[in-house]
Design a binder for these strands. Sequence first.
DNA 1: ATTCTGACCTGATTGC
DNA 2: TGCAATCAGGTCAGAA
Length: 325
Amino acid sequence: MPELPEVEIVCRGLNDAFVGHRLTKVIRRFAQLRWPIPDDLEASILGVSAGAGPRNEGGSEAGSEAGGRADGRAGGEAGTEVRTEVHGEVRTEVRSDAGVLRSVQRRSKYLLLGFDTGTLLIHLGMSGTLRRLTAAEPTRAHDHVDFVFGEQVLRFNDPRRFGAILWYGDSEGPGGSHHLLRRLGVEPFSEAFSGRLLFDATRGRSASIKQVLLSGAVVVGVGNIYASESLFRAGIRPTSAAGRISKPRYERLAASIRQTLTDAIAAGGSTLRDFVASTGQSGYFQLQCFVYGRGGEPCRVCATPIRAIRQQQRATFFCPSCQKA
DNA sequence: ATTCTGACCTGATTGC
DNA sequence: TGCAATCAGGTCAGAA
């Protein structure tokens, strides 16, 4: 599963390949992910009310060979009927650029695809991938959804179905207020993230520091691998009570988290199982881990055998010599 | 309020 | 070779 660096790589890939292009169709082959994929997703994105009539359904693909260039007058293009509700007043207008993907952003491990009508939330869960393919590419097992952008397709595949595809319409407020995003901690690369924040947020907490990092309530994007790696670089035992770690050590931890994530992004995201970039390329080399997955092997710094334990049913790795309680 | 457990799923790997 | 048990990068909902 993608941790933050992988999601960041996918986010950049989506920006390069799809922003400015127009979504023409959503093909939903299997709807049951962590939550059901809305059945009116295509209509929501395109701004067409769900009951707008079956005549519109099939034949509206006429202008899709234009390859994403929208400046031409598009002679025969009828445009798409868009209905917006403003203060209870329903307006109908014809918009030829309905469905154009305006932006792709990452918040924690959520991908936020911005359309004029609202925000598409995508989470890759543990095993989700997004690939960029041509529309003719045959589907494989667990290819649940296609987002068709003319000739190219963004295809969502997720064997374990822990991922999510949700819609957050503009009428529901800005996407950032979605309940899944509202309680998230700060971004690790934001100004707000610091050793002081970690220190202040953990006073009185008896939970282990690794548990606090994984919870995402203070800082987001530190998954199971990078929690172990960051704590190693900071010289802190994963089992230490978060409330008993000093401010200087938290300063070091904040820097370690940033550095670990930066290194992983630079490496193209660590490739463990089935991560594939949105371009469909795989074969990124894996970030060289100091401790993760190296139980029993010698520490790369001091040669002491790395210890493997379990915390909250998750694998944790640390060097008993380099990392102090 | 904080902390912990179970649940959601399939697939790869391990051990008998 | 086959089959069962175990594990996997996330995170939500609910119980203790």
